[in-house]
C-alpha cells in the first residue's frame, strides 16, 4: 500500500469537489464533439505533412531524378533502392527506383538530401492495399502518386 498524504478538507468539504466534477462533466455534455467523422469529413493535413512519396517530373514529363543515390544513402530505414542507367545521350536516370512504403518512417531525409528536388513527401495520408507487394512502390507508381 502506498501511503498518500491527504489534504484534509473536512467532513463537509468532501462532497464539494465531487459536485464540482459532476458539474464539469455536465457542461462537457453540451459542447460540440471534436471528432472528425472520417470517411465523410476529412482532416486537412498541414502543408508540411509528410505522407506518401512522389517522384517529381519536369513540365515535359521527364523524371527529375538523376539516380545519384543520395536518398538511398541517407535513408535511415533503408527502404529506398536506386539503380542508375544512362541514356545514349549521356543523361542519368533511375532504371529502378523502389520505396518500401510499409517500412518507411516518413522522416523526410530523402526530400532533404535530393540535390535535384526530385522526390517529395506529399500530404496524402490515405494509402492502403491488400498485399505487401502493393507497397513496394516502383518508379512509375511513385511518379503517378
Amino acid at each position: 500500500m502506498i501511503p498518500v498524504k491527504s489534504r484534509r478538507i473536512g467532513f463537509f468539504g468532501t462532497p464539494l469537489p465531487l459536485l464540482k466534477g459532476l458539474l464539469f462533466t455536465l457542461s462537457r455534455l453540451f459542447t460540440k464533439p471534436v471528432t472528425y467523422q472520417y470517411p465523410e469529413q476529412k482532416r486537412q493535413p498541414a502543408d508540411r505533412w509528410r505522407g506518401l512519396h512522389r517522384l517529381k517530373t519536369t513540365d515535359a514529363g521527364q523524371l527529375k531524378c538523376v539516380a545519384c543515390g543520395l536518398c538511398e544513402a541517407v535513408c535511415p530505414a533503408n527502404v529506398i533502392t536506386v539503380e542508375a542507367k544512362e541514356t545514349p545521350d549521356g543523361r542519368r536516370f533511375p532504371n529502378r527506383f523502389v520505396v518500401e512504403v510499409t517500412r518507411c518512417i516518413f522522416c523526410g531525409y530523402c526530400q532533404e538530401a535530393c540535390p535535384k528536388d526530385a522526390i517529395e513527401l506529399t500530404t496524402n495520408y490515405e494509402f492502403c492495399g491488400y498485399t505487401r507487394e502493393e507497397f513496394h512502390m516502383t518508379r512509375d507508381v511513385l511518379a503517378r502518386n
Partner: peptide, 13 residues
C-alpha cells in the same frame, strides 16, 4: 451516447 458526449465524442452514430 452520454459517455461519448461527456468525453466530447459522438458516441455510436
Amino acid at each position: 451516447k452520454v459517455l461519448g458526449r461527456i468525453q466530447v465524442r459522438h458516441g455510436p452514430n
